[in-house]
Design a protein around this nucleic acid. Structure first.
Length: 494
DNA sequence: CGACGGGACGC
DNA sequence: CGACGGGACGC
């Protein structure tokens, strides 16, 4: 009861901006009814029906305060024109004018759907669209360019169709999101931006913008769609008959053979594919081979590759090996884990399918030598490893990082974050889920790695500053023994 | 048409 | 668990 009218100090009413609704309703509508109707759109911080001082009757005006602008906008979009109570007039819903503002003009969608954002100068309008389309449908993107030279000024406008989409963009684009799935050792990352609502243009110019804008919109619409977060799922036609998307992929393989093979022979054969971490010939009570061997790789890609290449392989000649996935007891029930697995499988299969048909095929694509298997496979073109700065260098820039649900091991973080600058050290705050990456140089946008496009992936060589190479195998096995979970990292340049 | 309150414990 | 800013459209 009391929480309905919990006091919102007047400062709160406009914080964050555009998070409060102004509603025109029938005078019979109560706070309870409003709260009931609007609660599904977000966290309501207060509902207030304006009443006549003397009679206490509603004046048919109400305010609903949400925690976020995107919630308020969504509620507005969905509830405007709705009949709350049978027989009453449809309600009108607008974003409320800020309390300090004296104007009582409705806030128009025009003011709520266009954002203004600073972007890398290298960004094309298509890059801009690809970056911001994850928050909603984009009507058009415009980059401000130097009129004479045509070069970008590093500023852009993005027009969404709905206020809630622009609000979501503003609320979320300032996070560098890094998703690491330890189970398949995959990392996705995106850039961080600071976007604000664009100040409306002058009226005279606004009409002109429409013609320009919609033309741009159509142009963009035809452009290819490469979402940084999208898993490049296979189009089925391009993949071999075996359905690797069913989810039955594991890092473990069972090898069946009719010929008597020694453990050493099987080891030698399957060790050609990098990442083998376990090989055991199964024997009976008398130590005789039962014709089966168990192999485990450190990653799914290697296992998929091994099965693809060695299932049916004659070894020794005349003896066909059977190679199949077996349950490795890992938890892969999470949706993210499954997607990640499908992703890796698709990636590996693509490589197998299109890869070089030469004699050196035993090497999984993308790795120049057996010892070079990176422990983190990425969906972006990570920069190569860089040498660490001297430990006593002074920090020119820090990255503040929030982990969810828990921090990754420091050595893994070092492997990832050293690629974006001269990393001095990884500092995890003990007992907390935050940490700092200290850099000796200034790298205004350390995350400008382009997403890998579905089909041709360039190699993640990492021409290994030898110093960063140490300790990798230990790190891998450490990681793999853990229960795999998606890790989300939000990072902020400090 | 339709624009801004009442009551305030928590260190 | 999230500190600061910078920054504007052929009118």
């Amino acid at each position: 009861m009391e929480e309905y009218t919990t006091k919102q100090g007047t400062e709160n009413l406009d914080d964050p901006p555009n998070s409060r609704l102004f509603a025109v309703t029938s005078r019979s509508i109560t706070e309870d009814e409003l709260r009931e109707s609007f609660s599904s759109f977000g966290d309501i911080q207060g509902v207030w029906v304006v009443k006549d001082k003397q009679t206490k009757e509603s004046k048919g005006i109400s305010y609903v305060k949400f925690a976020k602008s995107s919630q308020a906008c969504l509620a507005m979009e969905e509830m405007h024109g709705k009949v709350l109570v049978e027989g009453t007039k449809p309600i009108k819903v607008f974003i409320a004018q800020s309390r300090s503002s004296t104007r009582h003009r409705d806030v128009e969608d025009e003011e709520l759907t266009r954002i203004f954002v600073m972007i890398p100068k290298t960004f094309s309008e298509e890059d801009l669209k690809n970056t911001f389309k994850e928050y909603g449908d984009i009507e058009y993107c415009v980059i401000i360019k130097n009129k004479s030279t045509g070069e970008s000024k590093g500023l852009g406008y993005v027009r969404y169709y709905k206020p809630s989409q622009a609000a979501l963009a503003i609320e979320n684009c300032d996070k560098i999101t890094v998703v690491v799935d330890v189970y398949v050792m995959m990392l996705l990352s995106s850039l961080a931006y600071r976007a604000i609502l664009a100040e409306p243009r002058t009226k005279a110019a606004a009409t002109e913008e429409y013609s320009r804008g919609s033309a741009g919109g159509e142009y963009m619409g035809a452009a290819d769609s490469m979402n940084q977060y999208a898993f490049p799922m296979a189009d089925p036609g391009n993949y071999p008959v075996m359905d690797y998307r069913s989810g039955d992929i594991t890092r473990c393989l069972m090898i069946s053979t009719r010929a008597a093979l020694t453990q050493e022979q099987i080891f030698a054969l399957f060790d050609i594919i990098p990442g083998m971490e376990y090989c055991e010939l199964q024997r009976d009570a008398y130590g005789m081979s039962k014709g089966h061997a168990l192999i485990r790789y450190s990653n799914l890609g290697s296992a998929v590759y091994a099965k693809e290449k060695l299932n049916g392989f004659e070894y020794p000649p005349g003896n066909r090996l059977a190679v199949n996935f077996v349950d490795d007891g890992e938890d892969r029930s999470s949706p993210v884990g499954r997607m990640a697995m499908q992703f890796v499988a698709a990636q590996m299969m693509t490589a197998v399918w299109n890869g070089p048909s030469t004699s050196q095929v035993m090497k999984p694509p993308g790795f120049s030598s057996v010892s070079q298997m990176p422990r983190i496979q990425t969906d972006v073109n990570l920069p190569p490893l860089k040498k660490l700065a001297l430990p006593d260098s002074k920090a020119k820039e820090r990255l503040f990082v929030v982990f969810s649900p828990s921090p990754l091991p420091p050595d893994v973080l070092e492997d990832v974050f050293c690629r974006f600058g001269s990393l001095i050290e990884v500092h995890l705050v003990p007992g907390r889920k935050v940490g700092y990456m200290k850099y000796a140089d200034k790298q205004t946008r350390p995350w400008q790695c382009a997403p890998r496009s579905g089909r041709q992936r360039s190699k993640d060589e990492g021409d290994a500053g030898r110093s960063s190479q140490r300790g990798i195998s230990q790190a891998s096995s450490y990681l793999l023994r853990r229960t795999a979970r998606k890790m989300t990292v939000h990072a902020f340049v400090t």
